[in-house]
């Protein structure tokens, strides 16, 4: 599904990612953990194609297509979804209008028929019910005035509607209380299938109680310094990162 080979990237000559190798197969959930400043969010941004990051080496393949050659919207249409750490408030743009436009762009790209307003509403309301979101969500402008938890749930709703092949969740758990965390995790778990994959970036082990990863990777100073199964996350919870950092040094 996703093949990252020796990826190097930075901002304005400052290297942040210093050679990342990661292979994610369909049906898998990978967690990427690491202390602050290790490059976790940079990795998410580079995968989604955010401006301002220079890729200086390596490659990223999504089902054999070179992802780094594509514009952000092309990546999204190919099935990459980034759940933002800080979802952007867009006053004045109605959530339903925005989401239907996005869904239809992606359907168009896949050669599927676009959803009319009625069918879209039917589909989105069903998803909202699953996520425990109230219907007034749709009438509000995108993220504008939303609480932290609402913003994150909105990301999960978008993800559910866009049905990506590869979902990258960038610290989706930050700022969530335990109930919101459960809802978010539940949304991710519902999406999980044999033909898609998820990369969950998190600082804390807490989220991984609800989204059980197949693999856990520790990112430090722009490199993956340790990979393991879910027990690694528990080990990190108990012992912190220092022991790994010492070993890596």
């Amino acid at each position: 599904m996703l093949e990252i080979k020796n990826l190097q990237a930075g901002i304005e000559d400052k290297p942040i990612l210093k050679g990342i190798d990661l292979s994610v197969n369909a049906g898998e959930v990978h967690a990427i953990m690491g202390p602050n400043g290790s490059g976790k969010s940079t990795l998410a941004s580079v995968l989604a194609g955010r401006d301002g990051y220079d890729v200086t080496g390596g490659e990223v393949l999504l089902q054999d297509d070179d992802l780094l050659d594509l514009a952000p919207e092309e990546r999204a249409r190919e099935g990459v979804f980034l759940a933002f750490q800080y979802p952007v408030e867009i006053p004045g743009v109605n959530s339903a209008y925005f989401l239907r436009s996005a869904v239809n762009e992606i359907r168009k790209h896949r050669g599927e028929e676009e959803l009319d307003a009625m069918n879209f509403l039917k589909a989105v309301k069903a998803k909202m019910k699953e996520l425990g979101l109230s219907e007034d969500f749709l009438k509000r402008p995108v993220n504008a005035g939303f609480s932290g938890g609402e913003k994150k749930r909105n990301e999960i709703l978008q993800m559910a509607m866009l049905n990506p092949k590869l979902a990258v969740l960038d610290e989706t758990d930050s700022g969530l209380d335990i109930d919101a965390l459960r809802i978010v995790a539940d949304g991710v778990n519902r999406l999980k299938g044999l033909d898609n994959a998820q990369v969950v970036i998190t600082h804390y082990q807490r989220l991984l109680d609800y989204i059980v990863p197949d693999f856990v990777h520790v990112l430090y100073d722009g490199r993956i310094i340790k990979s393991g199964d879910k027990t690694l996350a528990h080990e990190l919870e108990e012992k912190g990162y220092d022991w790994l950092i010492r070993d890596a040094a």
Binding site: A48, G49, R50, D51, A71, P72, E73, R75, A76, R77, F81, L82, F84, P87, V88, I90, P91, G92, V93, N94, Y97, F98, S101, A102, E105, I106, H109, P141, Q158, L162
Partner: peptide, 24 residues
Amino acid sequence: FYLRARGLDTKTARRMLMHGFAGE
């Protein structure tokens, strides 16, 4: 970028933002 990351091209994203700005 947020709108592009959801599959909308730059032109559509700009139109949507401007429309939203007036729509407020």
